[in-house]
Amino acid sequence: MRLLFLGDVVGKAGRVAVTEKLPGLVAALKLDCVVINGENAAHGFGITEAIYQELLDAGADCVTLGNHSWDQREALVFIDRAPRLVRPVNYPSGTPGRGAALIETRKGARVLVVNAMGRVFMDAMDDPFAAVERELDAAPLGRVADAAVIDIHAEATSEKQVFGHLFDGRASLVIGTHTHVPTSDHRVLPGGTAYMTDVGMCGDYDSVIGMDKAEPLRRMREKTPGGKFEPAGGPATLSGLVVDIADGGLATRCQPLRLGGRLDQVMPE
């Protein structure tokens, strides 16, 4: 199986890059499954039902979220009728939606997707480690799930690395989102789990983590309230990781993908 994970889609620029480039990538890279983090897709903050459907129509099999899950209030309602939309699993009991989904890909494979949110420098949440453990126990890799993806949406690199090592051998991929800057530590861990501390974003990198530069620069310097953050609208880079997965669900190889926009281009073989 070959899987692509695309980082946080930021605003219209990121959405346009996905809708224009993803269908061709599915064919060219012979992708069996695509997972996208969409928590910043609606003008940089949250997701709408129309955008969720737009990402599925472009080729996504599943869309994950994060700390901006509810910035668009409609998400509180439509998430219950969106089986391929996954919010962090460690929200408190009773939160709408689901924190994990066992999806069937276009070729019939079963892929478990789990979304978790970190607790270091983030809002107080339930224990993400125990929550992910429960989901992996419920759909064991190689028996119930043909592949398993964990999106750890977190600020601290150390917390993301703990996730990778803790679940090495029990997931096909542990991948970090949220900080919007791609790291260069992609690798397959000793137990067979592909890992990357942060996959980056699908957005305009001539920005401050996807936002137009003017307001972040002013706010950081002056430390006073001001205007709203607005997504940067220049050419976007698709940032992702392609993972080759063997029978049994463990990774054999992972390769970064960066396409379009301002970053150096990297295409997997």
Rank of each mutant, 00 (worst) to 15 (best):
A139C: 14
D264A: 15
L217W: 15
P88F: 11
K213V: 13
R218Q: 13
P83C: 05
G108I: 09
F129N: 03
G24H: 13
A13M: 06
H165M: 11
A214M: 07
T179Q: 09
G142C: 00
K213T: 12
G59A: 07
P140L: 01
P268S: 05
A232H: 10
F45I: 04
E155Q: 13
M122C: 11
P96R: 07
H180M: 09
V10F: 15
L56V: 03
A246P: 02
V208F: 03
L29C: 02
M1R: 09
T64D: 04
E269I: 06
A50C: 00
Q161K: 14
R87G: 08
A154K: 06
G99E: 02
G11Q: 11
V77L: 15
D198I: 08
H153P: 00
V63S: 02
V111G: 03
E54D: 14
A138M: 08
T179D: 04
P190A: 08
K228S: 08
P190W: 12
A194R: 01
T197L: 03
P88M: 12
H68R: 07
E269Q: 13
L241D: 02
G66E: 08
P88L: 10
V120Y: 02
L65P: 03
C202D: 05
V132K: 02
A60L: 05
G248Q: 10
L141D: 01
V26H: 04
Q72S: 04
M211T: 04
T177N: 04
Y52C: 09
L4P: 00
E215D: 11
F129W: 14
P96K: 10
L238W: 00
G227R: 09
V35N: 08
R258D: 01
G94K: 07
G200K: 07
V18N: 05
V9M: 03
G192V: 10
C254K: 08
V242P: 00
V113Q: 12
D126Y: 10
G169K: 09
C202M: 05
P225T: 03
K107M: 05
D123Q: 14
G38F: 08
V86G: 08
R262M: 10
A214C: 00
D80P: 03
V89K: 05
R221A: 15
P190M: 10
E20N: 13
